[in-house]
Design a protein around this nucleic acid. Sequence first.
DNA 1: CGTGATGTTGATTTTCCTCAAGCCTGGTGG
DNA 2: CCACCAGGCTTGAGGAAAATCAACATCACG
Lengths: 227, 227
Amino acid sequence: MNSNLKLTSRDRAVLMKTPFLAGLGGNSLVRMFTNMTVVSLPTRKTIFREGEQADAFYCVLSGYVRLYRLNREGREADVRICAPGDTFAECLLYGGTKYRYHAQTAEATTLARFDIQEVRDLAEQETDIAKAIMTSLSRHLLSTMECIANDRLHTAPQRVANYILARCPVDGGPASIRLPFQKSLLAGMLGLAPEALSRAFSSLRKIGVTVRGRVIQVGDVNALRNI
Amino acid sequence: MNSNLKLTSRDRAVLMKTPFLAGLGGNSLVRMFTNMTVVSLPTRKTIFREGEQADAFYCVLSGYVRLYRLNREGREADVRICAPGDTFAECLLYGGTKYRYHAQTAEATTLARFDIQEVRDLAEQETDIAKAIMTSLSRHLLSTMECIANDRLHTAPQRVANYILARCPVDGGPASIRLPFQKSLLAGMLGLAPEALSRAFSSLRKIGVTVRGRVIQVGDVNALRNI
DNA sequence: CGTGATGTTGATTTTCCTCAAGCCTGGTGG
DNA sequence: CCACCAGGCTTGAGGAAAATCAACATCACG
């Protein structure tokens, strides 16, 4: 764990686009920054565990973080995958004192770490910070409900198609995207076993989706929409 | 639609226990109340539809509300079931301008209706209102993530067992609870077809769970925990 | 005592998980 | 440069879970 690093300019740009910091005035911004530490972690490193006392929340600057739960037999299920710009465990600002899931890096990752108690105090003083927290929570909640609907309403190939479509140009025609992470991570994101993701990809082949490594090519975006 | 009713004392009590109004000072409380209207609706009445312009959010005072999505073929999937005290669509205060799912009463229901724009303005002025919103959003987000974990990690009988256990006395031994709504609603809540819920109940019979109408009797709460 | 809504049960099918084996790729060391 | 290896990915076979469809039971209620 490599702490108290200086922000790279890229990390700084990511941070400033977060709903969490985007709307802040100069004063609030300074106060948030003085409260923040930067942490660099290797891949597969545990950030916190379910049940631990929660004293910080985080924003992903680069890399990916997996939030997951375990059942009694030890099987893991991902609850959320956090990409650069995503905030996690911020719901504990006003929703309890313990982490409710495990958090682990999915690759080499840098995080911005915020002290929960200090941000709570700041939010009481600066209305724009409170507003930023509400914006972040709202978006987070909407995307989580979206996830439930997606799980309950769509089959594996449909979920994969949705994922691809959300990252394709809106007009029809051919397109090509590159996965920003391993396929096993995408599988967890969509609530699937890795094998199921693989099969979903191959079932999309017949409507013009080809996958080589992390590159996904779509013959006709509109055809994908009708799945 | 019966609007602008006076609050019954029971409805008022429900409202005051909501995270949304519980922590408010007298001044904020008055301002929220003047902004609020009470709506009574019959069963299976649509409250709003996905895609509509969002100008209000709601708190359930009595009855139940179903939030759901449709897929292309018209199949419905519940995203959330709101009980008395629950707030819904409050994420649109800071997260977009359109409703993201359908909302429908599951039985005769009374709602407190709040104007989104007005509450947004209030939240800027009164820090305790902002705090109440953050608390409400945080709880809501935690329970929604809980729901994803439950869906992805547990089988139908396990989900039913969890539901029962969450409403039973914590110590072991026998217990009895009464469903506050139809079984079909519980099925939707747990992400199951009604038939699957029925089968889950009958599979729990062998560990001492008996169901008659809306009454569920548990022989030994501890036995249920080990499922 | 019908009537319609709600819940149950059975049969079938779909979907996806699990386990096991093989493949492909990129990296390492000889 | 090549053999080897490990990790991630794919494919296949089998099976478990739950959806769907259909028939029947139960219940509330006029």
